[in-house]
Amino acid sequence: MANSPDSGSTGSEIQDDLKKVERESEAKLLRHRADDYVAMALGVGSVVLLWILQSMGLY
């Protein structure tokens, strides 16, 4: 368990790891944002498509 992760690590190793976590977090947040946009396009797009089909009498 990571109760004492600092033990055995040098200062630069710790800094590198912190930077890595920060980079990964930023990348993940960016991906979340992109996923949000794609989901909005898909979700709202599907609903609007069904709406158009219905207004054309195809549904």
């Binding site: 990571a2 790891d17 976590v21 990964e24 977090s25 930023e26 993940k28 979340h32």
Partner: peptide, 18 residues
């Protein structure tokens, strides 16, 4: 996962802790 990743850099967490 989203919340763990969001808070990780704020609390200066180690990658193994995440």
């Amino acid at each position: 996962v989203s919340a763990a990743v969001a808070i990780a850099p704020m609390v200066r967490a180690k990658s193994e802790e995440v």
